[in-house]
């Protein structure tokens, strides 16, 4: 269980990373924290020709709160975000979800953007990014662009990132004072991939509800400010639309039922905080 051979480039500037990506495209992988990529290398599931290490780029290490947005650079580790006052204040949904990402020992190395790049359908950070209506800042030697989370995640471990692009940051809209958020997750064991994860953003006028672990990517719906059985019906319709996965750990009906029950509970929790 040892990785196959690859070249290793330690980028000393974003431009160098761009140049390497331009040269190797799909044959290259960016390595940041490596918490997902390294085991894929060791299992020889991934066989890049080149790894581009971006963790020496100081410009990617910032958590920047600017106006009504929070920008988290590609070099920011999950533990750093969890300890950040800006994250706690401006993105409490992210702060609530981060303790569910792996374990403390992997959060110390793993990055937020790495999780977004990997786009595991059960991962918490892509779910939060989608629920909050955040975006992904991509760049290449050609151009910079911003892709909304809704357009970024295209399927199982698949994203809108082009082969020569790297994620520079994720951008989250800061929490509005009239909103409240909640996050709930269930996995077989603590720290496991979510069987179902729910994120809710509620305001007096409506509900944003997002679900991870069920479809092949995180999915989101916006509801008006429903309550009672109309809310249950709306969640139920969403649960059916999710095309729930069956796997070793959960059946599709069980996943849907968790969406109904945990989804409702998550929305209620967010509402309690709003009140």
């Amino acid at each position: 269980m040892k990785p196959p051979n690859f070249d290793y480039i330690r980028a000393e500037s974003v431009a160098e990373a761009h140049a390497a990506l331009a040269e190797y495209g799909g044959e290259a992988r960016v390595i940041a924290g490596g918490q997902t990529l390294v085991p894929m290398l060791s299992m020889r599931l991934a066989r890049p020709k080149v790894l581009i290490d971006i963790m020496h780029l100081a410009e990617l290490k910032d958590i920047a709160a600017k106006g009504d947005a929070l920008r988290i650079g590609a070099g920011v580790r999950q533990a750093e975000a969890l300890a950040s006052r800006d994250v706690a204040e401006k993105a409490p949904l992210l702060a609530a979800a981060l303790p569910w990402v792996g374990h403390a020992q992997t959060r110390n190395r793993g990055t937020l953007c790495g999780s977004v790049a990997h786009a595991d359908p059960s991962a918490e950070i892509p779910l939060v990014l989608l629920a909050l209506g955040g975006s992904v800042a991509l760049s290449s030697h050609r151009k910079r662009r911003s892709v909304s989370a809704a357009d970024f995640f295209t399927g199982m471990m698949s994203t809108a990132r082009a082969d020569d692009e790297m994620i520079e940051a994720i951008v989250l809209p800061a929490k509005r004072p009239d909103t409240s958020t909640a996050f709930q997750e269930f996995g077989r064991r603590h720290g496991d991939f979510a069987i179902v994860a729910c994120a809710a953003v509620v305001s007096p006028d409506g509900i944003t509800f997002a679900v991870g672990g069920v479809a092949d990517k995180p999915e989101r719906r916006d509801f008006p400010a429903l309550d009672g059985s109309p809310l249950d019906d709306a969640i139920d319709a969403f649960a059916w639309e999710l095309d729930a996965r069956e796997d070793l750990h959960a059946t599709a009906p069980y996943r849907r039922e968790l969406v109904r029950r945990m989804g409702r509970a998550t929305i209620e929790e967010a509402r309690r905080c709003l009140a």
Binding site: P3, Y8, I31, G34, L51, Q105, T106, N108, R109
Partner: peptide, 18 residues
């Protein structure tokens, strides 16, 4: 698990060159 730059981390998820 070892300590890398002051925090506990998995040595098996780290390349020596990193």
């Amino acid at each position: 698990t070892i300590e890398i730059n002051g925090v506990p981390a998995r040595a098996c998820l780290t390349l020596a060159v990193q």
